[in-house]
């Protein structure tokens, strides 16, 4: 809108409402490393009825500061409400809503799969194709470690499920922005 002293036609005004973006969001949240911070962040989601898909917490290069990376579905909740509410927490220092195209995101998953002597090598080959590692081999099972974006992990899961997926553990995504700028 042009910034003049002309009267503003009310008809031209458009509301900036709560936005349901429809896409997945990766929020990178810098917080003070103090007791109870994770509870405050997760509790905020709980009581507003927002659902967190994945969450991971770890230290940063500054020991007073931790980074929480969480992913949520922008189709089911207005993302701007989430970030505004997060900003209100005193211990939250910075929030970045990472754009998928400008972000490197990785998740680590461990798959425990049933096997017999014959299928064991098939699973090993699959893991190799996914640039994964076999981290444990037993008589009846094998554990594969896969790192990558969520889609890669889900693709591997689909492939090994028919062999008998005993369990799977995923860390949730961590993410960092591309380029020189800080996340």
């Amino acid at each position: 809108m042009v910034d003049t002293n002309e009267l503003l036609s009310l008809d031209d005004l458009h509301a900036a409402g709560s936005v349901r973006s429809g896409r997945k969001h990766v929020l990178s949240v810098l917080v003070e490393n103090k007791p109870g911070v994770l509870t405050r962040v997760s509790g905020l989601f709980t009581r507003r009825g927002f659902n967190i898909d994945t969450l991971s917490v770890g230290p940063t290069d500054d020991e007073r500061i931790s980074r929480i990376t969480l992913t949520l579905d922008g189709a089911s909740q207005p993302i701007d409400q989430v970030t505004k509410q997060l900003h209100k927490l005193i211990n939250v220092l910075k929030i970045k809503d990472l754009q998928p195209s400008e972000t490197v995101a990785r998740e680590l998953a461990l798959f425990k799969v049933s096997c017999d002597p014959q299928t064991r090598s098939e699973i090993r080959e699959l893991a190799e194709v996914f640039r994964g590692k076999i981290v444990d081999i037993g008589k009846k099972s094998i554990i594969a470690e896969i790192t990558g974006e969520r889609s890669k992990i889900e693709a591997f899961e689909k492939l090994v499920r028919p062999y008998g997926l005993v369990e799977m553990i995923r860390t949730g995504e961590v993410a960092i922005s591309r380029g020189r700028e800080e996340t």
């Binding site: 005004l13 900036a16 509410q85």
Partner: peptide, 22 residues
């Protein structure tokens, strides 16, 4: 109506009704 919404808490703006001029 169009809405002008003035508030010190950004989380209140457009929480229930989208504001035209926040």
């Amino acid at each position: 109506a169009k809405y002008i919404h003035i508030d010190v808490d950004p989380a209140e703006i457009s929480k229930n009704i989208p504001a035209h001029i926040p």
